[in-house]
């Protein structure tokens, strides 16, 4: 029987959740036995080669590229998991949500104390920012949420092994943290 396929994706976050995936230490060997990784920054596979069983997405949605890739994950993943505070709530990047986008950009690229000859970037190669940073579930359907900043390696391990074995996802008290 073919191994279940797992993909991971990264949007507006700090890559900390991916670090946490790696943090499962030697269990990564078990995991590799258990699953096969498709698209993921871990193996640098950029495109989905086929539909996968589980997708883990890190980061909130702050620009048009995030939207596109998140939608792509939804289309290609049977189960989609929002991994970590940013994917679940918007997280730290969403601190800008109460400030109008124009003010944010004005401060960052024009008025900021360290800016010289500032200009708001408009290069066509960079993604266009959205008015807010959105949690993933406002953009696509999310099947499971794993909060944490980052979620601990144990949470990720517990979640993956439960889902792969078809058991209910029942996390003990100490594993669920928002920070």
């Amino acid at each position: 029987m073919a191994k279940p396929l797992v993909a991971t994706g990264h949007f507006t976050g700090c890559f900390g959740c991916h670090m946490s995936i790696l943090d499962i230490d030697e269990r990564i060997l078990d995991l590799v036995e258990l699953v096969e990784f498709d698209k993921s920054p871990i193996n640098d596979i950029k495109r989905f080669s086929r539909p996968v069983d589980i997708g883990l997405v890190e980061g909130g949605v702050s620009n048009d590229e995030n939207v596109e890739f998140l939608r792509m994950f939804r289309e290609n993943c049977k189960i989609l998991i929002a991994l970590g505070a940013c994917a679940v709530t918007g997280g730290v990047p969403s601190i800008r949500n109460t400030v109008p986008l124009r003010e944010c950009l004005q401060e960052a690229f024009i008025d900021g104390p360290t800016v010289v000859d500032g200009k708001i970037p408009d290069d066509p190669d960079i993604p266009i920012l959205l008015d807010k940073v959105y949690p993933c579930h406002e953009v696509v359907k999310i099947d499971y949420f794993l909060p944490g900043c980052p979620p601990s390696a144990d949470v990720i391990w517990a979640a993956l092994t439960a889902l792969l074995s078809g058991k209910p996802l029942d996390l003990p008290y100490e594993m669920v943290k928002y920070d």
Partner: peptide
């Protein structure tokens, strides 16, 4: 606007604890 990851009170916060 609750940003738990950057909040000094995280871990000691009753709102967060109630959610847990």
């Amino acid at each position: 606007n609750h940003y738990c990851p950057t909040c000094e009170h995280s871990g000691n916060c009753e709102l967060q604890a109630m959610a847990y």
